[in-house]
Design a protein around this nucleic acid. Structure first.
Length: 271
DNA sequence: CTGAGCACCTGAGGGC
DNA sequence: TGCCCTCAGGTGCTCA
């Protein structure tokens, strides 16, 4: 999916596009995405007004004026748009929420791994369904100590640890690869073999790369688009993911499959 | 508890 | 042109 920078970009745009807008009608065109869409239809959203939109992990959370929230996850191919309500529906637009101002919020998702739910507030200020997530990578809580502690006695690879949402949220296949390349660490290294200093390096580069990617509007590989339909420009900044050769030493990139995901690395620069 | 494997989906691209 | 294969930004289930 959309990893953290893409979700952040979308949440910021939805905040501008939806804030103060009132729901006129909710339509769904499939029984389910990752979860059933029936509760969304029965939620009685007509007449409710959006008060803003924020991000947690890879979720966009559009808050409503009654305390509930429209919770979105983009799976691999989910795209949110807000545009004219009267244009023809696209093939994979599964949810259309018409607003009273002549616009409509639309959720398009060819592979249907995404999620659109209405959730009540939980105890921590976030929707109830977002409990049990790890720390935000851009928060102070994500530091070398946390990563070092989480990596002890773990047989799994460093890359899988970085992508483990119970440890740190929002780092997916692209940004894990970029973080490991910048840190000079091979993706397949056992997490338990990381030094404290290497954990500090990983944390530093993860934060730097995620911030940079947000600044460039995220990464468009094929499906990801902004709320206005434009593309994320971080794709041209990728150093290792999907690259033929290492941009530093010119060595052809290598690939290894970890946790079922292709992991790109430079066999010369990463150890 | 952990980790491995796979299921959930459609579409794009390559080889024949 | 079509068929068959592999692969794709994620998550969550079962099983050992």
């Amino acid at each position: 999916m959309p990893e953290l920078p893409e979700a952040e970009t979308v949440a910021r745009a939805l905040d501008r596009a939806l804030k103060g807008k009132t729901i006129a009608r909710v339509e769904v065109f499939l029984p389910k995405l990752r979860t059933s869409l029936a509760p969304l239809m029965k939620a009685g959203l007509e007449g409710r007004t959006f008060v803003g939109c924020r991000r947690r992990a890879r979720y966009a959370v559009a808050d409503l004026d009654d305390g509930r929230a429209l919770v979105l996850h983009f799976g691999m191919t989910g795209v949110a748009r807000v545009d004219a309500a009267d244009r023809p529906r696209r093939k994979h637009e599964h949810v259309v929420i018409t607003l009273t101002n002549g616009q409509a919020f639309r959720f398009e998702d060819p592979r249907r791994f995404g999620l659109v739910e209405v959730q009540p507030p939980g105890s921590d200020g976030w929707p109830a369904g977002l409990a049990d997530l790890g720390v935000e990578p851009l928060s102070r809580a994500f530091d070398a100590d946390l990563l070092f502690r989480a990596s002890r006695d773990r047989k799994k690879s460093v890359k899988e640890l970085l992508m483990d949402n119970a440890v740190v949220t929002g780092i997916g296949n692209i940004y894990a690869a970029e973080t490991l390349f910048a840190s000079g660490i091979r993706p397949q290294r056992r997490a338990c073999r990381l030094t404290r200093a290497e954990c500090a390096t990983l944390v530093h580069h993860a934060k730097r790369i995620l911030r940079l990617a947000i600044r460039w509007g995220g990464t468009t590989v094929s499906d990801f688009h902004h709320v206005d339909g434009s593309e994320g420009k971080f794709a041209q900044k990728l150093k290792i993911y999907g690259q033929k050769a290492c941009p530093v030493c010119g060595t052809p990139t290598a690939r290894v499959v970890l946790g079922g995901r292709t992991s790109w690395f430079c066999p010369k620069c990463q150890h």
